[in-house]
Amino acid sequence: MLYYSGPVARLVDEFTKLPGIGPKTAQRLAFYVLNAPPELAQGLAKALVEVRHSIKRCTICCNLTDEDPCSICRDTSRNSKILCVVEEPRDVIAMEKARGYKGHYHVLHGAISPMEGISPEDLTIKELLKRIKSTEIEEVILAANSDIEGETTALYLARILKPLGVKVTRIAHGIPVGSDLEYADAMTLIKALEGRGEFG
């Protein structure tokens, strides 16, 4: 086991707290920072402090933003009657990159997971219900991930949203463009069949 002086050990330890960063990667990052020009470390430290102080949740959609409401919620050209519910802020980025959706969003900040102790009360479901009851939303698109937690969350939301009189839909999951059927797993094929639409 390698030992470093106090500040270096602390830096390595802090890097290992980040998701996907093991001890060796943390060590490489720490020494990269040490060997880089001082401006890099100062810029990194400043950016970390700034993001923690300036970023907050949008009071409408719960997405992360430096302005409240966020730019998407302020955009009057978007369809305010359609709401896409996603698990995390990074899911909004993915949807926006696709450039195919022009409605609004609601960010749950997680998914229901009894194994990890995450219940509906830990998500922004209360804010979602309040929003739907106080606006003219006609359709809610559930865009949770297609894992067990995402499916559990989607089923729970569908059950509590349908009595509110809104149309509840789920994004289709299926075969990625450019891939072959022979390489698809059984669950992907099932989801592709379930999400099929009229053709021609």
Rank of each mutant, 00 (worst) to 15 (best):
V168M: 01
E136F: 06
D122T: 01
V140G: 02
K46Q: 07
V140I: 12
G6A: 06
Y101D: 14
L83K: 02
L128G: 02
S134P: 04
G6R: 06
I175L: 15
A30F: 08
A94L: 05
G100P: 11
E50G: 12
R74W: 01
E182D: 11
G43D: 05
V177E: 13
I148N: 08
D68M: 03
G117E: 08
T124V: 02
E151T: 00
N79H: 12
I137W: 01
G178I: 03
I190G: 03
H173E: 01
L129H: 00
L48W: 06
K126R: 10
K24S: 07
G100Y: 10
M95E: 13
R90M: 11
L193K: 15
R90L: 13
Y3G: 12
P37N: 14
D13N: 07
K81M: 08
D68L: 04
I118D: 09
F31E: 04
P114Y: 07
I137L: 05
T16V: 04
L64R: 08
L29H: 10
R52L: 05
K133F: 03
A143V: 01
I21H: 09
E116D: 13
G117L: 03
S146L: 10
K81H: 15
L164P: 05
C73W: 15
I171T: 09
Y4K: 07
A184T: 13
G22P: 02
M1D: 12
L29I: 14
L129W: 00
S54K: 15
T25D: 03
A184G: 09
L11G: 08
V92T: 09
G174I: 09
S113M: 04
R28D: 12
L155H: 01
P176W: 07
V107I: 04
V49R: 12
A154G: 02
E127L: 05
E14Y: 11
E14L: 14
A47I: 14
G197T: 14
T124Y: 09
L181A: 10
F199M: 11
H109W: 00
V33E: 05
L48C: 04
G20E: 07
V49M: 11
V177C: 06
